[in-house]
Design a protein around this nucleic acid. Structure first.
Length: 424
RNA sequence: GCGGGCGUAGCUCAGAGGUUAGAGCACUGGGCUGUGGCCCCAGGGGUCGCGGGUUCGAGUCCCGCCGCUCGCCCCA
């Protein structure tokens, strides 16, 4: 047993898995560029206060999931538990909106939450996400959902449902909240323990409870869509209309309530059945009050986060797999100690000429060197021994064709480079 | 925080009270004295998660702890 292990709920991404990660990340970057989004990178930790203010005092994230620590100077910091607040903080701090009324950003970042790990849920996971700041146009809501659709289809994921809802705004949500409390108060003895507590701190969350008894009791509860103010109702209908125009299928789900306090108007989740209880692969919503809450000018915003590990689970589910291909193009086999200096020099020249190349550093037999070259996927093997050296040549073996020839040592690098160029 | 399953070689796993703990894959060497893949032979590699208990004897049975994993809550 190893003495040290990766902390609970964290994972090492090993070399064999890196191609999958790079594929997902690069695909995301590409899709974002098609939509005019630019990348931003923010620190892994922020002042604790930022998350407490934005996610909400009573949210699960703030009450029990944050990795908070104080640095030697006594400041309280928290490892990023979500991607939106840091992005908004950077947007305000650097005046990204100055002279640029609409800003579209994307990020790829680790996210930290203290939770019980299980399939598709980690204490450090990674999200790709986007944020649009500066427009309340319902077409932007539709664009954000559309980008999510394009991203998932580009990485080969299908079979999900998009649930969408509007949670209203500061003008209409209080009335709905009162109506909901009024409906549930007489029934509260039948609710689960968690929901009895939610009734006081965040009654909307009761609609999202997975307990059958709560689902039954809330089946006929008032629906938020019936309480939206004119502005929110028109906005939501317009979002649905834009999405219909581009052929995105939706499930309007009036029970969809998200865990963060800052959401307004549109909220959505992309749910996939094969993810089990953690069925959300991509989720987000509009947050028209967040920038102001963080000390900036009143600026509407909307975005989503998407769990990379969950995307990878789904790719596995669909038997999708990108592999690395060959690791080097050329392997240099030195036969005998006396030729190693020459082999080492040749290796350096190959690499400087842009040819991926390697050699043996374990003093292995030629047979073992060949086997290793095969395992690295080398297209060519260069064999140099005393005989070759005294004739000023090397044996060049084409592995896939199982053919070999003698090539003058001083022509070898150019020759291999030309073969490479022709091959690629 | 609560419940189920599992911890034996680098990996996947067999072994269910009785010599010195095994297999496949991988690795190293040889068959092939300078040539990969296929085949054959050999070799290296293990505090059987940790600690205690029962027993003449414990990977094996019992208890505790730790870890991993799956589910509940919640989230990407």
């Amino acid at each position: 047993m190893a003495k040290y292990k990766a902390p609970r709920g964290t994972k090492d991404v090993l070399p064999d898995e890196i191609p999958e990660w790079r594929f997902v990340e690069e695909t995301f970057r590409h899709v974002c560029s098609l939509y005019g989004y630019r990348e931003i990178r923010t620190p892994a930790f922020e002042e604790t206060e930022l998350f407490v203010r934005t996610a909400g005092e009573s949210s699960d994230i703030v009450t029990k999931q944050m990795y908070t620590f104080s640095d030697p100077g006594g400041e309280s910091y928290t490892l990023r538990p979500e991607g939106t607040a840091p992005t908004v903080r950077a947007y305000i701090q650097h005046n990204l909106g100055y002279g640029m009324p609409l800003v579209k950003l994307f990020y790829i970042a680790p996210i930290f939450r203290y939770e019980r790990p299980q399939a598709g849920r980690l204490r450090q996971h990674h999200q790709v996400g986007i944020e649009v700041l500066g427009s309340s146009d319902p077409a932007v809501d539709a664009e954000v959902v559309a980008l999510g659709v394009d991203f998932l289809s580009s990485v080969g994921v299908s079979g999900y449902e998009i649930h969408i809802n509007s949670v209203g705004c500061q003008n209409c949500r209080p009335a709905y909240r009162q109506a909901l409390i009024g409906f549930l108060e007489p029934l509260k003895d039948g609710l689960c323990e968690d929901c009895k507590r939610r009734l006081k701190v965040n009654p909307l969350r009761i609609l999202d409870c997975k307990e059958e008894i709560c689902k039954a009791l809330t089946a006929s509860a008032p629906r938020i869509l019936a309480y939206l103010c004119d502005e929110c109702r028109v906005h939501f209908e317009s979002v649905l209309s834009y999405l219909k125009t581009i052929g995105v299928e939706l499930v309007v789900d009036s029970r969809l309530v998200r865990g963060l306090d800052y959401y307004t108007k549109t909220t959505f989740e992309f749910l996939h059945p094969s993810l089990g209880a953690q069925s959300a692969v991509l989720a987000g919503g509009r947050y028209d009050g967040l920038v102001e809450e963080c000390g900036g000018k009143r600026t509407p915003g909307i975005g989503f986060g998407c769990g990379i590990e969950r995307v990878l689970i789904l790719r596995q589910h669909y038997n999708l797999r990108t592999d690395e291909g060959n690791i080097v193009d050329v392997f240099v086999c030195a036969v005998g100690e006396s030729v190693r200096q020459h082999a080492f020099k040749l290796l350096k020249e190959l690499r400087c000429a842009g040819v991926r190349a390697d050699m043996d550093y374990l003093g292995r037999s030629l047979k073992a060197q060949m086997r290793f070259a095969d395992r690295l996927g080398a297209t060519y093997v260069v064999i140099i021994g005393d005989e070759e050296l005294s004739n000023g040549v090397a044996t060049l073996r084409a592995m896939r064709e199982s053919k070999q020839q003698q090539v003058p040592l001083d022509k070898l690098v150019d020759y291999l480079r030309s073969l490479e160029e022709r091959g690629s």
